[in-house]
Design a protein around this nucleic acid. Sequence first.
DNA 1: CTCGATTCTTGCACGTCGTGCAAATTTGCT
DNA 2: AGCAAATTTGCACGACGTGCAAGAATCGAG
Lengths: 191, 191
Amino acid sequence: METTLREHKKAVTRRSLAGAALRLAMERGLDGVTVEDIADEAGVSRRTFSNYFAGKEDAVLDADRQRFQALVALVDTRPGGEDPWQALRAATAELYRTWPVPDVEWMAQLRLLRRHPSLLARQAGDQVALERDLTAVLVVREPDEEVARLMAATFLATIRTGIALWLEGAGEQQLPELVDRLLSRVRVQGT
Amino acid sequence: METTLREHKKAVTRRSLAGAALRLAMERGLDGVTVEDIADEAGVSRRTFSNYFAGKEDAVLDADRQRFQALVALVDTRPGGEDPWQALRAATAELYRTWPVPDVEWMAQLRLLRRHPSLLARQAGDQVALERDLTAVLVVREPDEEVARLMAATFLATIRTGIALWLEGAGEQQLPELVDRLLSRVRVQGT
DNA sequence: CTCGATTCTTGCACGTCGTGCAAATTTGCT
DNA sequence: AGCAAATTTGCACGACGTGCAAGAATCGAG
């Protein structure tokens, strides 16, 4: 992965754009930033920005997407015989080990997310695609498509809820513990 | 409610706009419709459209919002001592009695929804507000805010999943039964 | 009914956005 | 070196959302 110069450069500009978007949005608020601002900051044209992202919201949420994709990948690599919901819980715990919470970029995104509705909408759009991928991975463990789908949906909803509660709270509890506690409360009856 | 002439007219134009948006979007696809088209169809200016809706997506999804708001209201009027999750299931069943499924407008929205990502995003944005309202109503039955929140989230996720499965399926099963079956599979452990 | 106050509609102007297209630049590969 | 493929850029266009002020409709008290 990423041997050629082309791919390397593309990866760099993508990161550069996402970073610029996040930084500027934090400084001035999402509405105080234009796509052109972001492109300038990244040393690239407005048109090129559109070659990478569909809008500033997409750029801002880039790390969030990556994080969830990593989570799906982790679920996929759990031991084969493991119970589906248990695999989800374990993968979540692994994610917090692999990619600890004080990830500055990610937290910056979350703080923005809390305030700005258009970001919430765009994020939710992503989650639909994510739910599809997660279902595909779960189907190995839970052959009933319907149930797998339901698990993916409730699982993601639970994660989202945990993050929301954590952001609203005064930070008196650690995110991993909070999320795991919520996950332990939810049961999706298998076949 | 709606005694004065002013409110009546406003309600009429709102319905008119939402109806026009839905009709045109079905005919030409969402991207083949401009806000101006919708405004014209409703006999109103482009500027006035913006006084009612934030965008064509909002207009198209109007009936969907109403349906979910009705659901929240139904949950609120369930007998006081009823178990929270049971109240949600019962309210859902009531909704299907009160407002039967072959609601042409609503189904039209759903079919559009399935294909068009930007509608999914906007709908998800609405659901965040909905989740807030639903939580407020649930708190009466489940005093632990955290759990109430979690219930609202998983409940809405389950409903969404049911509708999605139903739309994708060849229609071999009735929506109310499908949704209730999914709801029966999910447990959120109270305090 | 009259008339002032309130609310709603409309048109205009402006900055922003996404995208198709074609020219120019950069990179890949032999 | 030099051709092919991929990427960037500028341009132009239609669409969008919104502040603003003028005009029209509605309300309510006398």
